[in-house]
Write a protein that binds this DNA or RNA. Sequence first.
DNA 1: TTAGGGTTAG
Length: 777
Amino acid sequence: MKLPTTTHQNLLRDLLKPLPPPSTTVLRHSSTTPPPTPPPEQPPQTSQIGSPITQITTILKTTPTTHWPSNTTLQPLLSSLTPHSFLKLTRHLPSSKTSLDFFNYLKKSTQPLTDTNTDKSQHLESLSSIFQAVLEHIQRENPNNVKGLYEVFTSYKDESFPLSINSITLLLRSLGKARMFEECFEVFDYVGKEFRNAHVVNSLGESLLRVGRVDDAFKVFDELLEPDALFRPNNATLDIVLENVLGRYWSGRRVGDEEIVGFVSRSAENGAFPSSWSASKLFSSLCRRGGDVGKAWELLHELFEFGVVIETHGCNALLAGLGREREYKKMTSFMKEMEERGIKPDVVTFGILVNHLCKFRRVDEALEVLEKMKDEVSVEPDVIIYNTMIDGLCKVGRHEEGLALMEQMRLHPNCAPNTVTYNCVIDGLCKAGEIEKARQTFDTMNEEGLNPNVITLNTLIDGMCRTGRVNSGMVFYNDMLGKGMKGNAITYSILITAYCNAANIDKAMQLFDEMSENQCSPDAILYYSLINGLCHAGRMDDASLVMSKMRQAGFHLDIVSYNVMIGGFCRRNKLDKAYEMLHDMEEAGVKPDRVTYNTLISFFSDKGDFVTAKKVMKNMTSDGIVPSVVTYGALIHAFCQADKLNQAVKLFWNMCSATKVSPNTVIYNTLINTLCKSDRVEDALFFMDHMKEKKVKPNTTTFNALLKGFQEKQWLDKALHLMDEMVEQSCSPDYITMEILTEWFSSVGEIDKLRKFIQGYEVHDSTSQTASKLCDI
DNA sequence: TTAGGGTTAG
């Protein structure tokens, strides 16, 4: 074998084309496909007895190798054969050894009859064919004998004949499968660019991808995409790349979406397109959570332009991605486009549409889609789409309609409600506070023979906990454990959070410790919740312990949990510990955010250390975080607490004029409350007016502060006006309002007015229009 | 297609 020379180049390249389709097509497929198998040997038929191939085969089989040169009938018969006939003939020989003998014999003892280039090339091509058959024999005799193949290659590579494409791919696939990549590259380099067509490149590239050598594979594939490339990728190239890179069990370097899209796009420009199956897989992958849907959209349209068929499945993936990104307009236009291109929407297409409409509370539109698919497109809704719709209805508080739809399901064939249907309905009832009904529905479900799953449990337990029945939730869970069901991290998360909220930290910790006994391991959310509960309860030692357990389990604190911990330490006056957390954050590469700064500013200013508070505020600004209404609120509150009312008011005006920060209810409340307590009720009223001017809504706290101030001043008339204002704004009195007014109004004999106020009537003028109107009714 | 969490000023 000799490296192709320029004089031979064109001839050699011609060799690539005329190879017979059977072997070429078989070899082109994946390496799991067995190598071409010669037809089973048959006894020579009468009509074939005289054919040269049969005659030669008989001679070769019956004559010892050493006698071949002296056989006078052999030589003329051989000179009449085409290269392809040589391939067929050699495949019929009994073994690799005989085939190799034949190859050597032919190489030495036969010469082209004439010395023309055509004859020379014919001769070389014949040798190529025979050599290919030799390799095929070796592989068939022992598919694991990769070394044998490689040895034959190395001992013959310096002979002056080219390797056929099939020989190259056979070598590359076998060596690749045996992970002999050094040898693979030796063959690849040896054959030279002139022989590295798509089949050859695909063979090596696929082997590399299979073992996760992505970068090497892409380097190899890129050869086909170079501007001056001799060969272009084929459709199989794309399928190989996509199937291997998007694989579920992929263990190599994660290939970025951009890289994949770039490859597909460049291949399409070179006339190679993915099969509709791998295109579907590609779009599913690009549109998955966190994927780049915009890129997927562009690529899909690019492929559409090239006339590539993308089936419903792939379009559905894009549609789901658009839904996730709230691109409703694009969703609608894309569905139209699908229709124009003759891509039929299926039940999944409509499912995606219904799901995303529901997720954004556009439930009525979702109901319309459901009707439309039944009536106009005649796609029968399935259980999933009904479940989606029922969940959507329940999530917006329309659980009655959800229940009705569940009944409707029973009327459809193959659409009976399943566990998920019940889970959605139970959740709807729980969220509506109808725990008893939810419990009954759970029983109905069991009576119908449907098995509840862990989601059913969690939904019910959560419903109980949120309505203050934590112990019922716990009892229910233990009941279910007794019946052989199992909880998971979410079950514990629900119960632990509920116990923390109920200030039963010990029970929460006990559950946390018990989890592992029930084969449950906490996840990040559970850790975050527990840390939060412990910090709020001031149990910082426990919080620190849980934090270190969390780290041991391989989870990291995020910025919110750091803030929770820092806030907890500050409340406990443990500044050193708070600093430790800040140091930790820095090491973990988590940057402080506005909440971190506000927590610290609040801490220092509450302690009266306004100098340090201002320093922190300065750092905040230089860190690129703009002080917010909470920052100013913390400082104003602290000034008020420290009897520095004038500084508080000054900062308020400074905030209003020098920054873009608008005051909120809390800040007004702080000022109004402090002014009233300092006997400056008039000034407090001024801020109340300012508040209205700025369209900031007062709340019960605002009214309570003023009412208390009016009580001190015995301004009964003003108080009645203010109470009317509360009624007008539907601002409900709370226990503090009642305390102030009961004491005051009973002492001045106006308890009737208070009664009217509680009933929601205006009180300033007992003959006022509203009151009389309401009394008439 | 169904279930869980958290931060700062009062």
